[in-house]
Design a protein around this nucleic acid. Structure first.
Lengths: 348, 348
DNA sequence: TCTTACATAGAAAGCGCTTGCTGTACGGCT
DNA sequence: AGCCGTACAGCAAGCGCTTTCTATGTAAGA
């Protein structure tokens, strides 16, 4: 049998109530008593029963973090930052909180299941990172779930995700549209007029917003877009590789390739190299996110830097109520254009 | 007030016991009754109270995964694989389990705190990934904790970590020593005799084992190592960059640089390039792990591929009792040498 | 027809903790 | 000296669920 509060109480010659109060430190206990209790706890190697405590107190110290792909540093960086702020071990603030990182794999139903699981655990807060799926029914279902959570007192923060109106969720949204526009404008400014675009999976807000930004820039400069210039694919290297080959096949005269994110851009670079094209002399390449490895690409990747760690940290603080929510519950986080070696003037 | 089991019972005109049994499906319930209960659950939007359930049943559906750095794909890939196997949402197997990814940041005390937190939550299983710290006291403390956990019925699996004897923990250990040896032998085989080594942080098993492998190879070929050829640093790009400059400063005649992992190797490449040296013509570079971006380095990185996803998946299955533990509770996972463009014959 | 067994459903006793309320000293007042 | 406020400590009632044991209705066996 494991050691219980009562065992500690018996050994310290006090009531269980007193032990509980010593452990929670939310009620006056005489120093001598406290010492006696602590000694007993130590001697018996007592560990609080989390579920019992959560049940009785109707609160929990679990914080959920939903990510699309935990193996992708884009999410890893945000998740790590959130975690560092929620006052888990190492965080100075109050009680120890346990961060639960949930990997949805970008699968709508999994996202919902995890939210239910978190709701079941009576999570103290939930942070949803990354773009949302655009399937109508799913969005409504998620919104309903989020509303339930906030109503039950769980703080919900969206990090790098569009706002979810009327759910009580706080949103720190990335300005994907603005970043996309800026990036493409940079290329247009260099003289590019024929730009391929490798978009992410369809039905994703991130994908759509970045693409919209790209198109806005084209339109603003009177560039008519050829439908063949856009290819959709997953957010991974291989998709970038294949999409680039496809782009090249469709229109070998392209002078630039804009990728939905850095990982995809890396695949694009590989495809271009394998096709005997030089970067940026023959074709310029641009990514998005500015993940750590982007600067190590050769040539270094021109991209839009998203302050992932900062945004994650802020999301964590907001989730813990340690920082005020932005006005209106919505804040926009801007990206910063990073011009590097992979983009240059088009040939000729 | 939130909806409770009793509410559902009342609405379905059955006892709470019956509702519980329908929900858990571990006791015969007439089909008609079950349907009625399920209907009530649906209508009331009932969500089980996790803590209460865990308390009463003395079990929990939480599975902990400890990682050193969640922003590092090395850990992200393993964590994702573990998670995909523990039967969380998406996993077909039985109950929904919640994976708790805990970021220790490589800090000993945090590791311990997280283990206590997991113990407090009565986690069903715990997977510890990556190398262990070699601080004696800490190791003993962790071992004691692990023993407690296994004694309490929590399954403990070490993934990519040396075995912890007498703790009841199951170990899937990476053959870092063998990989390190093979890698260096490859370079020696190419003709290198003056090899720099950028090791990871000291007091880490991974660091030590890889370095030992390297030295074993040198010794086997009668190469006397110059103490100046080894530099320690963090497992990140910047550390690799700085260490490489330091190495070059100490001995400009080095013809190869072996890094503790791929990320460090990338930093090394950058430093070499910035120093006007060509890879591999002037200096060969090698990494370890074969993370996804390694193949995109220019030239592609010679490295040792560790089957992170496979190991993680296996660890997950073992943790769930879905796969038998290896004989003796210890299995060694080998790496595979990947020879690519970053290594070549030394000049001259 | 009466017993024996089986399939379900309910009653109730906790699981280990928190917390509102109720003592009980003790020191400082008037 | 008598009273009250303060500072602790304990009692006991749950928190919402699981599960053992018991009760009941029914089908099968004698």
């Amino acid at each position: 049998m494991t050691v219980t509060l009562a065992d500690v109480a018996a050994r310290a010659q006090v009531s269980p109530a007193t032990v509980s109060r010593v452990l929670n430190g939310n009620y006056p206990v005489a120093a001598s008593t406290r010492a006696r209790v602590l000694k007993a706890v130590d001697e018996l190697d007592y560990v609080l029963n989390g579920p019992a405590s959560a049940l009785a107190a109707a609160t929990s110290d679990l914080v959920g973090i939903l990510v699309n792909d935990i193996a992708d540093p884009f999410f890893g960086i945000m998740a790590g930052a959130v975690q560092s702020e929620i006052g888990g071990p190492g965080g100075r603030a109050g009680g120890e909180r346990l961060a639960v990182v949930c990997n949805t794999g970008g699968i709508p139903e999994r996202e919902l299941t995890y939210l239910t699981l978190l709701q079941r655990q009576r999570a103290a807060a939930v942070v949803l990172t990354g773009g949302a799926m655009e399937d109508g029914g799913h969005q409504a279902a998620v919104a309903a779930k989020l509303r339930k959570l906030t109503e039950a007192g769980t703080r919900v923060v969206l990090c790098g995700r569009p706002p979810a109106p009327d759910t009580g969720a706080i949103a720190l949204t990335f300005d994907n549209r603005g970043g996309g526009r800026e990036l493409t404008e940079h290329l247009i400014g260099l003289g590019h007029r024929r730009l391929g675009y490798i978009a992410g999976p369809e039905e994703r807000t991130t994908t759509r917003h970045r693409l919209e930004g790209h198109r806005t820039a084209l339109a603003a400069h009177g560039i008519e877009e050829d439908p063949r210039w856009t290819v959709h694919g997953r957010y991974d290297r291989q998709a970038g590789y294949e999409a680039t080959l496809e782009l090249l096949r469709r229109d070998p005269t392209l002078t630039a390739v804009v990728a939905a994110n850095d990982t995809v851009a890396l695949g694009a670079c590989a495809a271009l190299r394998d096709s005997g094209l030089r970067i940026p002399d023959d074709v310029s390449v641009a990514g998005f996110d500015d993940l750590p490895f982007s600067i190590d690409a050769v040539p270094a990747l021109t991209t839009v830097r998203l302050p992932l760690a900062e945004a994650g940290a802020r999301a964590g603080r907001v989730a813990m109520g340690r920082e005020d929510a932005p006005a209106g519950g919505i804040a926009t986080v801007r990206g910063e254009l990073m011009v590097r070696g992979s983009s240059g003037r088009p040939r000729g």
